[in-house]
């Protein structure tokens, strides 16, 4: 009787390779479907004037959307607003979070409670936080306006936080600093805690003053984390939408401008051109910064 041809067992390596492919397939397929394809579709759409009625064909306009964008004064206004917004919120939240981290990096009673309490604004859904801020800053009976006008006498009349362009810019910045400073706090606190305590003791024995210890030991240790907090936060806040849109109509940062162009004005072609330009700006700034850092270090 002839035995069947011996089946060579697939090598472990080949088996692993097959399993690996099987495992990454869903993830790769999903990423392709929800990110990569839409990215290219967006580029494509930015060259067209998409018809509102799906039964009608789209109209090819070439770089017409980009030309219209660059001629739109609202675009430059949004760009400037976004730059101010990013600068103020990133600086404010990093400084506040960093200071809180330095204060928390000690032993004291209720430390755990304080840490959890400080995370609350970061965890709370934005819609809930927006509602209570609208209440707090209400010009008629809001507690903030009451404190500023009646208790402190800083204002003659209640400031119009939601209608005045400058005050509402200040308001959305304050709101965002309050909401996101816990991110900087957590990141900087955990990098502070990874510093070896023996280094501090040695410095104290050598008679170093607190400020010198901070400048020569603490600061260099946390600087890389601070840099990545600032980088990530700048990018995320550049794309900010909900926190501003839900609070006031007076601060059309780029995210709001994009959203309104797409869904209020229904100009989908211009909207996709805006998002292409936004992404290009971020990529450009990040790569220039990375190249400069490389140049500086070599």
């Amino acid at each position: 009787m002839r035995s069947p041809p011996p089946r060579i067992p697939p090598s472990l390596e080949a088996q692993n390779r097959r399993l690996g492919l099987l495992f990454v397939l869903p993830a790769v397929a999903l990423v392709f479907a929800v990110i990569i394809y839409p990215v290219f579709f967006n580029l494509y759409l930015s060259l067209w004037k998409p018809a509102l009625n799906p039964a009608k064909p789209d109209l090819f306009v070439g770089f017409g959307n980009y030309a219209r964008l660059l001629a739109d004064p609202q675009f430059y206004r949004s760009l400037a607003l976004t730059a101010v917004y990013v600068a103020l919120t990133v600086a404010g939240s990093t400084l506040l979070g960093g200071s809180a981290a330095l204060l928390m990096n000690r032993d004291f009673r209720g430390r755990k409670f304080a840490r959890s309490a400080l995370l609350l604004s970061y965890v709370m859904p934005v819609i809930s936080s927006v509602f209570v801020w609208i209440y707090l800053f209400n010009p008629l009976y809001g507690m903030v306006d009451y404190a500023l006008v009646d208790l402190l006498g800083l204002f003659e009349v209640a400031p119009q936080w939601f209608d005045d362009p400058v005050l509402s810019l200040l308001l959305v910045c304050l709101f965002d600093i309050w909401r996101i400073f816990p991110f900087a706090l957590i990141m900087i606190l955990s990098s502070l805690q990874s510093i070896d305590g023996a280094v501090y003791e040695a410095a104290l024995i050598d008679g170093a003053r607190p400020f010198r210890i901070f400048r020569c030991i603490t600061l260099p240790e946390i600087l890389p984390v601070v840099a990545s907090v600032v980088t990530l936060r700048s990018i995320w806040n550049f794309y900010k939408f909900e926190d501003v849109y839900l609070l006031t109509k007076q601060v059309p940062i780029l995210g709001v401008y994009l959203y309104r162009t797409a869904f209020t004005v229904n100009d989908l072609g211009l909207a996709s051109a805006i998002s292409v330009v936004m992404f290009a700006l971020v990529m450009g700034i990040v790569f220039v910064a990375a190249a400069r850092r490389k140049g500086a270090s070599s």
Binding site: V34, F263, L268
Partner: peptide, 19 residues
């Protein structure tokens, strides 16, 4: 991916979901 955000894709996603 860190340089990316959902708001950038609202227009194509809107069209794809509708289609």
């Amino acid at each position: 991916v860190y340089m990316f955000s959902g708001i950038l894709l609202v227009v194509p996603l809107f069209r794809i979901i509708a289609a």
